[in-house]
Design a protein around this nucleic acid. Sequence first.
DNA 1: ACCCGACACACACTG
DNA 2: CTGCGGTATG
DNA 3: CAGTGTGTGTCGCATACCGCA
Length: 551
Amino acid sequence: MTAPSAVILAADYYLHNFERLINAAARYLDILPAEPLAALNQYQQLSRDARMLLVRLLSRKGLYFRREKLHYIEISELDNAANELIFSGLVSDTPPAADQLFSLLTLAELKPVAATVGINASTKAQLLMALGELTNIDDVALRFSELLGLQWLSLQCQSLLELLLLLYFGNNYQDLSQFVLSDIGMQPFEQYQIRPADRPYQTAADIEAALRLSELSKAWHDAIERKQPLNCEDVLAKLPATQNNRILERRRQRMLFVIGRQAERAKALALAQQCYLQCDSWAAQERLSRVYEKTNVAAAATLLPQLWHAAPNETLRLSVQRICKRVAKQTCAEELTSLSVQAVQYQPPSKMELSLPYVAGVSVEQQLVQYLSGQGACAYFCENSLLCGIFGLAFWDIIFAPVIGAFDNPYQRAPRDMYQPSFAEERQTLIEQRFAALATGDFGIIKQHFTEKQGLTNDWVNWRVLTEDVLAQALSNFSARFICAVCQRLLQDPAHYRSGQPDIILFESDGAPQFIEVKGPGDTLADHQGYWLNFLAQFYPASVCYVQWQP
DNA sequence: ACCCGACACACACTG
DNA sequence: CTGCGGTATG
DNA sequence: CAGTGTGTGTCGCATACCGCA
Ligand SMILES: [Mn+2]
Ligand SMILES: [Mn+2]
């Protein structure tokens, strides 16, 4: 109730936010499906109170609500509002199905009434289970409801909200709370330019496909959450055909990849192959070659060398090489044999060993930081946040540059094409200019963005970890050559190189930097971590520290 | 950038 | 009474 | 064994409150 934040929102803030969605959807009026369009018209005719109640209900979890559990002091006539909503058809007063109805009652409510039908159980789960086995379950549920004098409100327009969110954010995970987080300053965003010209969806078919993809994805994750049964074939059949819209096609391929993985687990390799063949991503190509390894050695022998040569990073190349080695044993393709022999340039990183007293509840990384600090050095546990953060700050304005199609709502943490090859291509000149400036050793732009953009959401900057302290040390001790090389590497394959960076950055008393990847007992160095250490070792000491617990 | 990745950690399988 | 997970709120 | 591959759990605003064990 008491507002902890300095910002105080208007009493009807949520209505405003919902209407932001509606206003933004105006650009799609010509291509909206009939059903949500009708709901939208109904909404426009509602009184203010009814709108407010509707948005309150839409913001809650679930579709069914007990009237007496709703207390909204900012809505003056709740009953009138509810009746109006029911009259409009956007909400109905039908009670939920029996099992749903039961679960919306409290244990205290259930117990005495359940006893009248001869059910006595101590926990709610047991009670629900027993009630579920009644043959006259629906009658019993309705009787319970009447006995308790319950009135029900059931949302009939949830799909309208889902559509509005999908159109506004272009994804399935951001929702109305995004507005609040931004408005109260909890998660503010950069004020980049949004070009009104391009709307993400162009045709009615686009919207239809977007809706279908989001439904399939939701159903998929629902099934996972409830454990079982995932019918890959079924979902694959329901998936829309190849999309012209780049964003939609990317979403489709994401879904295809997930289905493919599941098919692999279910040993449906032909199905998995069918999925992966429709995907462009490197990950899918790698999975495809693993499928071929088991089902079609000849195909593997063709695909693997292609992958090996085209691989955008060492980690993928190494994985491909390992598969090569195995496949080479099954076939005598000489190209495979030669590839499997070729070294993927990799130096085992230098190792250190250390024994530390075990302290419960403190991570190995933290303990090593403490230990090193005791040695007179400055150590920070930054993982990916240091190098990614430096990149994010150095290229802030370029990341948020108003490229066509990059931004379509004010709540993006990166441009749409951040992890596509087009990112660097379309900003080529800006990027080159920035490198030229950085190469002179002038890191002013980084410091400037650190202060000016403090707290703003950027997919590359983790403000919690990248403190003024670490950054200052880094900027005064890293060479321009090093910072440029790191940024080049990140730009080369941003999605891949944003991870695998060492746990700890250490500055010795003279400022000399050193990178350390910490490994506790039972943890091993991952491939991408090794390659980062290799890369860093060209500039500064970079090693793995194996920690053991003192007996 | 779509309930995700990024980590460590926990297995299982293979030669 | 307590602590925990889920939910609602700004 | 080591070297692989795959599958898990955790965390991501802060705060208040509810229902349950
Ligand atoms: Mn780590
Ligand atoms: Mn580590």
